[in-house]
């Protein structure tokens, strides 16, 4: 089976500095795939390249067998949705409205529909609302639907971001450190949520600092260091890789 996402020698330079070079990996459909690495290893850069915020200087991605288009909204339309490391919700909109925006790319009503409210548009609005509520329920914050997103607790904001991303009907959900700032209980619930998401057939790509979470949940893990991929494989294998231990895990355990 062809992998859902392939990174084919992707590289990016900022000025003279190579932030990423020659990154290659395959993400099998239906898996939870972890991407770890020390600070500044290039994880978020990789995300930004993947989601079209930046174009790679070398190599490219293949998604569902075809090369990825450039613009962020096209990438989203193709089926890749993301969250942000430093949460970026639409702050003054309610939780529900945030998720409804996520439906934009899968719905069609335009100016005419907005102004004349034909039956088709009304049905679509109703469907958007229903689906958004469903997703809020799915991530477990349905009771917060009408709250302004800025006023939600940190953990709820993270979940809301996931619900908003799911609203775009992604085949690949890319999460940038979803457990950052969460306590142990919250992290555990997040783990359950990710399993639930995978169960619906969505592939998950996870950038994480919490090595335990990654190792415990991911089917495969890639390790970045100084912009290069130093190991890739199932967690047990990666965990034993001496280069990984030295570069990342070793430092982590002694810290």
């Amino acid at each position: 089976m062809t992998p859902l996402l392939r990174a084919l020698g992707v590289g990016k330079r900022f000025g003279g500095l190579a932030a990423l070079s020659e990154v290659r990996f395959d993400i099998p459909e239906g898996s939870i795939y972890g991407l770890i690495g020390p600070n500044g290893a290039g994880k978020t850069t990789l995300f930004n390249l993947l989601t079209g915020i930046y174009t790679p200087d070398e190599g490219h991605f293949e998604f569902g067998g075809a090369p990825l288009p450039g613009k962020p909204h096209d990438v989203c339309a193709r089926g890749i949705a993301r969250t942000f490391q430093n949460i970026r919700l639409f702050g003054s909109m309610t939780a529900l409205e945030n998720v409804m925006v996520g439906r934009h790319v899968r719905t069609r009503a335009g100016l005419f529909g907005a102004i004349f409210h034909p039956a088709g548009e009304r049905d679509e609005e109703a469907a958007i609302r229903a689906r958004a509520l469903e997703l809020l329920d799915f991530v477990g914050i349905a009771h917060r639907a009408d709250q302004v997103s800025r006023q939600l607790s940190y953990g709820d904001q993270r979940r809301l971001e996931i619900a908003r991303a799911l609203a775009t009907e992604p085949r690949l959900l890319a999460l940038d450190e979803p457990a950052a700032g969460m306590n142990a209980t919250e992290t555990a619930t997040l783990g359950t949520l990710l399993q639930k998401i995978r169960a619906t057939g969505v592939t998950v790509l996870l950038i994480e600092h919490d090595v335990k979470l990654v190792m415990g949940m991911c089917d495969r893990v890639a390790v970045l260091e100084y912009g290069r991929l130093i190991a890739e494989g199932p967690p047990e294998q990666v965990q034993r890789d001496p280069r990984v231990i030295e570069a990342y895990l070793g430092a982590e355990t002694t810290a």
């Binding site: 989601t51 915020i53 613009k71 962020p72 909204h73 989203c76 339309a77 949705a81 993301r82 942000f84 970026r88 919700l89 639409f90 702050g91 003054s92 909109m93 409205e97 409804m100 925006v101 996520g102 439906r103 934009h104 790319v105 719905t107 009503a109 335009g110 100016l111 529909g113 907005a114 102004i115 409210h117 548009e121 679509e124 609005e125 958007i128 908003r164 991303a165 775009t168």
Partner: peptide, 27 residues
């Protein structure tokens, strides 16, 4: 009517955070 529509929501999203709006598939 525009304000409460799909288009109006998209405008509000852009106003609030353009990068997040792009990532959510808004052109």
């Amino acid at each position: 009517r525009l304000e409460g529509s799909r288009i109006g929501r998209a405008w509000a999203a852009i106003r609030e955070d353009e990068i997040a709006a792009k990532a959510m598939g808004l052109n």
